[in-house]
């Protein structure tokens, strides 16, 4: 069986399982899983967006949670003012928010892109361990900013009265919501897949392997990396908007560095630089958490060795293992 076939089979089986999940779990009377898997799809979206910068451009951001949080807060704040029937104080025009999905999720994407533009513009002046530290620092700054922002609940965050609304769809229904998350994940994966194989994507891969050489060839690498960082930030922002809806709650915890770390673990576990891999990573990590946490609160003790094993022996993570693709960055 050649590699291409094996890859297609892995992806098709994976897709079929995800599509069939709601009817199967409803039939098994384990509908709770639909909600869990919505969460998994959302984190998969965040992980795929991190893979774009980590796996393809070599930017190890440990602050990706910042965009998750910003996206969630965009949705949360817009919904908060609808509930309170008050104007948003920091925006002109006396806008009283929105619970329309197109508006609030769109806002989440725009706002998180802008944050990514600013954070990226500053962080990308550094590289290596400094880049890791500065992205981490930005996320932590936002974390403490929202903790102290009592207007929007501070540490306690914002409870949403309802999920966002899409005409003709009932997002309160877990299965509908799940399919929306899955569709957005697939759309984002497709976009990323096109990007990493485009001319722009080749520039990213070149930067990862040898940025000095890229510059000597005439590429102003900074600009390319910044654009890539913004696209990733937008993806994470959308994931944030969805996670706010999934849990009907928005809190600063999304921006805590441990959350960024979890997303990075999903990428590494699933397979860096594969686009599809992080989905497998998100499924594996969150299922593991779900199952193991039932037995012990120290479930990370088991995650640790698994991760070490993957890093040492499977450069392309679960995805590489399933597809038999040892992989290279080219």
């Amino acid at each position: 069986m050649d590699k291409f076939n094996r890859k297609s089979i892995v992806l098709l089986v994976g897709l079929a399982l995800l599509l069939a999940l709601p009817p199967i779990t409803i039939a098994m009377e384990e509908a709770y899983f639909i909600s869990l898997f919505s969460r998994i799809m959302i984190y998969a979206l965040a992980a795929v967006s991190l893979d774009l910068i980590l796996g393809y451009a070599g930017m190890a951001s440990l602050g990706h949670g910042a965009f998750l949080g910003v996206g969630a807060y965009a949705v949360g704040i817009l919904a908060f003012h609808v509930t309170e029937e008050t104007a948003i104080p920091f925006l002109p025009g006396g806008w009283a928010g929105s619970i329309n999905a197109v508006i609030s999720w769109g806002s989440a994407i725009v706002v998180s892109s802008l944050f990514a533009l600013v954070i990226g513009a500053l962080s990308l002046r550094t590289s290596g361990v400094y880049f890791i530290m500065i992205t981490l620092a930005f996320a932590q700054m936002l974390f403490f900013f929202f903790v102290s922002l009592t207007t929007y609940g501070g540490e306690d965050g914002i409870n949403l009265d309802q999920r966002s609304q899409i005409p003709g769809l009932d997002l309160a229904d877990d299965a509908s919501f799940y399919y929306v998350c899955l569709a957005l994940l697939l759309a984002f994966v497709y976009i990323c897949y096109r990007i990493v194989n485009s001319r722009f994507g080749m520039v990213m891969r070149g930067c990862k392997q040898n940025e000095t050489r890229m510059r000597a060839l005439g590429y102003s690498t900074y600009r390319y990396k910044l654009i890539c960082f913004v696209i990733a930030g937008a993806g994470a922002g959308l994931a944030g908007a969805l996670i706010a809806n999934q849990s009907e709650f928005v809190g600063p915890g999304l921006m805590h560095w441990t959350r960024s770390g979890e997303v990075m673990i999903m990428v590494i576990l699933g397979g860096m630089g594969t686009i599809f891999g992080p989905i497998f990573g998100a499924v594996a990590l969150l299922l593991m958490e779900e199952v193991l946490a039932a037995y012990t609160e120290h479930w990370m003790i088991i995650l640790g060795p698994v991760l070490i094993f993957v890093v040492l022996f499977a450069r392309r993570g679960i995805y590489g293992f399933l597809t038999g693709d040892g992989g290279r960055d080219g």
Binding site: R194, I195, S198, R199, F200, G201, M202, V203, R205, G206, Q209, N210, R213, M214, L217, G218, Y219, Y224, I227, R328, D329, G330
Partner: peptide, 25 residues
């Protein structure tokens, strides 16, 4: 670029002179 093929290495140089680097699709 150690992980690219020889052809891709040179293609990166060609691409650099062509502009069109902000093609995403």
């Amino acid at each position: 670029f150690p992980n690219f093929t020889a052809l891709e290495n040179v293609a990166m140089a060609v691409q650099s002179t062509q502009g069109h680097n902000f093609r995403f699709w």
